[in-house]
């Protein structure tokens, strides 16, 4: 065969290769406690969420502290646990495209009871925020994956 054929084949194969052959996703997460205090307070680590936490319904509280935070690299179809201070959470990357992720998120409370079992398809870089009331306070898990 001619060299021109192999060149054309190489071009076709290169263009057909997926943009994200590694099937990974890098996720950052923040476990947050929300409460009401005399003076408003927010940890600097929560800066990326500052504007959102000042909106309803989060604005019902004015004190936000980071309970735990971390980074996890998800491998496709391999569940990863997040290290939380209160309860447990697990993430599973089911599918990914260049700018789209299909995730499964499971969250258990401090008593080990399943609170959330969620599957969603989300754009990379967007925040996912899961929250629940614990008495008058709030317990929030925020994560973003790329």
């Amino acid at each position: 065969m001619s060299g021109r054929f192999w060149l054309a084949l190489a071009v076709v194969l290169a263009s057909a290769a997926p943009a994200f052959a590694d099937d990974k996703a890098d996720c950052d997460y923040l476990e947050i406690s929300a409460s009401t205090g005399k003076d408003p307070a927010m940890d600097s680590e929560l800066k990326p969420l500052e504007k959102k936490l000042k909106k309803p319904p989060f604005s019902s509280w004015n004190v936000f502290h980071t309970l735990a935070s971390g980074h996890v690299t998800l491998q496709k179809l391999k569940s990863d646990a997040l290290k939380l201070k209160s309860g447990q959470a697990a993430l599973l990357l089911r599918e990914r495209a260049e700018k789209r992720l299909e995730l499964t998120i499971q969250i258990d409370n401090a008593d080990g009871k399943r609170v959330i079992d969620n599957k969603q398809s989300v754009n990379t870089g967007e925040w996912l925020v899961f929250g629940q009331n614990v008495g008058d306070n709030g317990h929030i898990l925020a994560l973003t994956c790329r």
Binding site: K52, K113, E126, W127, L128, G131
Partner: peptide
């Protein structure tokens, strides 16, 4: 699924981008 609870799903949008919120 939110066993034993109700959930509310909403979207928050600001200059930092959108966020999907699930509140139980």
């Amino acid at each position: 699924e939110t066993p034993g609870a109700d959930s509310t799903v909403f979207n928050l949008q600001d200059e930092d981008g959108p966020a999907t919120v699930i509140w139980v």
